[in-house]
Amino acid sequence: MSPITESLPDRPLSSSEIHALEAQRDAYGVAPVGFAPDRDIVVAFVVIVGGERGHSLGFDTDAEQWVVVESFEDGDDFSAVTERLRSWVGDDWDEELAEENRG
């Protein structure tokens, strides 16, 4: 487990937990990427630490823990970073979310 993921629970975050992280903008910035509103869970987000280094984080359903999907430096193409994380979310979560929606 990475130091960036150690303080996260062994489950996806709720929207209120993401809002609490966003409220701490002085320390870091948070951008949710994988949000399932019907379940009120955030399965992936990007965090920017100190305005210089960023990490894409995702909840790995097989390992049941948060993983660093990608690390990047300030100046990298943020839209490309979020698009790669969305792709990762699809790989890990599409089937599980589809099963729940079937009922």
Rank of each mutant, 00 (worst) to 15 (best):
P3E: 10
P9R: 00
P9T: 02
P12I: 01
L13G: 08
S16V: 12
H19S: 15
H19G: 11
L21A: 07
A23Q: 15
Q24A: 13
Q24R: 14
R25S: 15
A27P: 00
Y28D: 02
Y28E: 04
V30K: 02
V33R: 08
V33M: 03
A36L: 11
A36N: 06
A36P: 00
P37T: 08
D38F: 08
R39G: 01
I41M: 13
V42W: 03
V43R: 09
V43N: 04
A44Y: 03
F45Q: 00
V46I: 02
V46T: 05
V47K: 14
V47I: 13
V47S: 10
I48G: 06
V49Q: 14
G50T: 05
G50I: 07
G51K: 06
R53P: 02
G54T: 04
G54Y: 09
H55T: 08
S56R: 03
L57Q: 01
G58M: 12
F59M: 09
D60E: 14
D62N: 11
D62A: 13
A63Y: 10
E64I: 06
E64W: 03
V67P: 00
V69W: 07
S71R: 09
S71Y: 02
F72R: 04
D74Y: 14
G75P: 03
D77W: 01
F78W: 03
A80D: 11
T82C: 05
T82H: 03
T82G: 02
R84N: 11
L85T: 03
L85M: 01
R86E: 14
R86K: 11
S87P: 00
V89G: 08
G90S: 10
D94C: 09
D94R: 12
D94F: 06
D94W: 09
D94A: 14
E95W: 11
E96M: 12
A98G: 03
A98F: 09
E99C: 01
E100H: 12
N101W: 08
R102F: 13
G103Q: 12
G103C: 05
